[in-house]
Simulated assay, not measured.
Amino acid sequence: MTSGNLLTDNPELYEARFPDPERLAGRWAEDCLRRYGSAPHVLDLGCGTGRDAAHLHAMGRSVVGADLSEAMLTYACDRHPGPRYVRADLRDFSPDVLGTPDTPGASGVFDAVVCLDSALLYCHTNDDLDGFLASCRRSLVPGGLLVAEMRNGAYFLGRDDLLNTPRYNSLTWQGVSYRSATTLRIDRTAQLLRRGRVWTADDGSAPVEQHSAWRLLLPQELRHFLTAHGFTVLELHDGPGPRTEPPWQEGDLPGTAADADRLHVVARLAD
């Protein structure tokens, strides 16, 4: 068995496994930005394949997409052009390197930072979270927005329906049938949700095993970190959102609970 990340190494397979033909994530983010009157310069952190960054660009925004994966960035440039794509670590990134499409190299010029699909939860430690929020603060104009969507740590308080039992998924890509077995478990000491996934294919290749983890953040814990870094929380709720059930639809207003599997936050940096 080999070890690697089959999805991030093959962005086209990633989009086949996690399709978003209606661009729900990008549309939800755009709805949040419009609701709070954000100006056009947007940084999409953990942009992945570039789908959401490209949607925001299509809405007339000036977008920079940032990710650590060179494979994802190459794919985004080719398949989802429009934004400027750069390599950056969301745990500690330099605004001077990012800039915006029309003012590269400038700092403090983004009107909003968007961080979707639990990308923020790759900040595994308090130092990582402080680095992320400090970098956001340096990159945003006064009054700028942070829009994030992620798994909700509170969901796993007393619940185990998503844990310790493999979940299977199958798809066919480029004529090859793939099957994945994904198991989630909680590492309580590290406060992480650990994910193990084994891929098998019918082309005779060896199985691929990958491991990743997300920080389990509780809603009030997240609120505390944001407040400590000078943000005012405008929304903090479990849905509706792009990955909730039922999913967000145009015109839906943010909820008030924070109990379900996903967590959505909109915060404004102090003027």
Rank of each mutant, 00 (worst) to 15 (best):
L222H: 03
L193E: 01
L146N: 01
E221Q: 15
S212V: 04
L45C: 14
V208T: 15
E22S: 12
V176D: 07
R262E: 02
F225A: 11
D78L: 12
D111W: 09
V42N: 04
R91F: 09
L269D: 00
G251P: 05
V147L: 06
S94W: 02
V113I: 15
V64P: 02
P19R: 10
Y122I: 08
D20H: 07
A88P: 10
P11L: 09
L236Q: 11
D44H: 12
M1D: 12
E22N: 10
S135E: 09
R23A: 13
E209A: 13
L90F: 11
L7I: 03
D187K: 06
Q249K: 10
N5H: 14
V114P: 05
L6C: 08
D202L: 09
R268H: 10
H264P: 03
L24Q: 03
T189E: 15
D9L: 12
Q174V: 09
G26M: 02
D102I: 11
D161H: 13
F132M: 11
T8V: 14
P40L: 08
L193A: 06
S177D: 14
L157I: 12
D202A: 09
V266M: 00
G46W: 00
C77K: 14
G204F: 12
T189M: 09
P166V: 07
T125F: 05
L217H: 00
M72S: 09
E250W: 08
H80E: 02
Y168R: 14
T182G: 05
L192P: 02
W28P: 00
L145G: 07
D252E: 09
A66S: 12
P240L: 04
Y168C: 12
G241N: 01
V64E: 07
P104I: 13
G105R: 07
P40A: 05
R91S: 07
L56R: 01
Y85G: 01
G82V: 09
P240Q: 08
A53F: 04
L236E: 09
D160N: 12
W173T: 05
G99P: 06
A53T: 02
L33H: 02
L7Q: 01
D78T: 13
G26N: 06
V63E: 08
A148L: 15
T232M: 02
D252H: 11
T227L: 01
C32R: 11
I186W: 01
Q249Y: 01
H237I: 00
R91H: 03
T8Q: 05
Y85P: 04
C47E: 05
L121A: 14
Q174S: 13
G82E: 10
D78F: 08
A76M: 10
D52V: 13
V63G: 03
D261G: 00
P83E: 10
L226K: 05
A119E: 03
L140A: 11
T189H: 14
G46L: 05
L163R: 10
V114K: 07
R79G: 00
H124Q: 09
V208E: 11
R34P: 00
L6S: 06
L193W: 02
Y36N: 01
L192V: 11
A190C: 09
R159H: 14
R194Q: 14
F110L: 10
R35G: 01
F156T: 04
H229C: 05
A134T: 15
L263M: 10
